[in-house]
């Protein structure tokens, strides 16, 4: 029920998957929208505050997700060997890009040594700061990775739909129904 089996994902993995999916989509949209806001827009400060706070929480969730993934059995994949290989590369890339995205975002906001406030509950201090034009380089990397990640997410989703509608296997279903 909670843990993965070789047949399918447990409730924790499924919940983490969809929580992260929704959060990433939300942060991407928020990010695109907030950088265009005018100075007098009520969201001019709230938007970035929200983006940073949710981003830090996502990092914590992703840390736990990684630990959970490593300490659980991995369901056996359906498909041809090449498809399984490709899927696993895409999954690893999704993790790498998402972590790079969060780290680059962190490096923008902490470039001058300022900490990041998370919903005014706690703050994450700056660890690496003061590189020449750190905020610009981190910003460019953040932007490029964000688009790259979303492109990969689209590929990932299309692949899931292909499994469901063309191959008619359980790949998508097992990310919706926990294995017993």
């Amino acid at each position: 029920m909670w843990r993965n089996t070789h047949q399918g994902y447990g409730l924790i993995s499924i919940a983490l998957h969809w929580l992260v999916a929704l959060t990433v989509a939300g942060l991407f949209a928020l990010g695109l929208w907030m950088v265009e806001l005018g100075y007098y827009d009520p969201w001019y400060r709230k938007g970035p505050d929200l983006h940073r706070s949710i981003g830090i929480l996502l990092f914590l969730v992703m840390g736990f997700r990684l630990i959970w993934r490593w300490s659980n059995p991995h369901p056996v994949s359906a498909g041809k060997p090449l498809e399984i290989k490709l899927a696993s590369i895409v999954h690893v890339l999704l993790y790498i890009l998402l972590f790079s995205l969060m780290i680059s975002g962190y490096l923008i906001s902490t470039a001058d040594g300022r900490a990041i406030d998370v919903f005014n509950l706690f703050s994450i201090p700056a660890l690496i700061s003061g590189f020449d034009n750190q905020e610009d380089i981190a910003g460019l990397v953040h932007q490029i990775i964000a688009y790259g990640l979303i492109a990969l997410v689209v590929l990932h989703a299309l692949a899931a739909l292909k499994h469901h509608f063309i191959d008619r296997d359980r790949t998508l279903k097992r990310m919706l129904n926990p294995s017993s």
Binding site: I108, S109, A111, E135
Partner: peptide, 16 residues
């Protein structure tokens, strides 16, 4: 112009 410094990285990024 990239050397603008208002003592706030996010603001400087915006200004650039």
């Amino acid at each position: 112009t990239a050397s603008i410094d208002s003592n706030h990285a996010e603001r400087d990024k915006h200004l650039r």
